[in-house]
Design a protein around this nucleic acid. Structure first.
Length: 156
DNA sequence: CCCTGATTCGC
DNA sequence: GCGAATCAGG
């Protein structure tokens, strides 16, 4: 493409009129890549891009690293030691003053889906009411017992 | 698979 | 500087 002043003018006009890069390319008989490339070099005002390309360089400020689905706990056996420190475990039976039970064993069958990063103060278990005979509440059971998806990409 | 725009990089 | 290739989202 010979970017004559006229060609650049036409590009600027069409660009200003809001045509898509491909459309401009069609009208000018060039590829959309040529259009977008030139527009970029001319520092023409970028119009809303459909994609969000991360502006690297700024320390990735992850808003909420709540990667719950990242590594779902194994749906096989409920871990036996999971019931420590469940905040809203039901009051169960108020232990007689004599017998102190720091860990009310089963009591509330609350969901033991882990939330947050283990080892951090934020870490806790879901502890919503678990489904009968399942270690998770309905919401998390639906996540925990998902069938393996199509894994063709992993096959390699 | 079609579209979109942005960026990369060999030329 | 150029733009095809590639990326990435709809």
């Amino acid at each position: 493409m010979d970017w004559t002043a006229e060609a650049i003018d036409q590009l600027r006009s069409l660009w200003a009129e809001g045509h898509s890069t491909a459309e401009i390319g069609r009208r000018m008989g060039i590829s959309k890549n040529a259009v977008v490339g030139k527009a970029h070099r001319l520092n023409l005002p970028a119009r809303p891009s459909p994609i969000r390309r991360e502006a690297e360089g700024s320390a990735a400020p992850r808003p909420a690293p709540v990667r719950r689905a990242a590594v779902p706990p194994p749906p096989r056996e409920p871990a036996p030691l999971r019931r420590l420190a469940q905040p809203n475990a039901a009051p169960a039976a108020p232990a007689p003053a004599a017998v102190v039970r720091p860990f009310p064993r089963v009591a509330a069958r609350s969901c033991c889906w882990p939330l947050g990063e283990p080892g951090t103060p934020e870490f806790r278990f879901c502890s919503a009411e678990a489904m009968t005979s399942k270690p998770y509440c309905a919401e998390h059971a639906s996540v925990a017992y998902v069938r393996v998806r199509d894994r063709r990409e992993d096959a390699a």
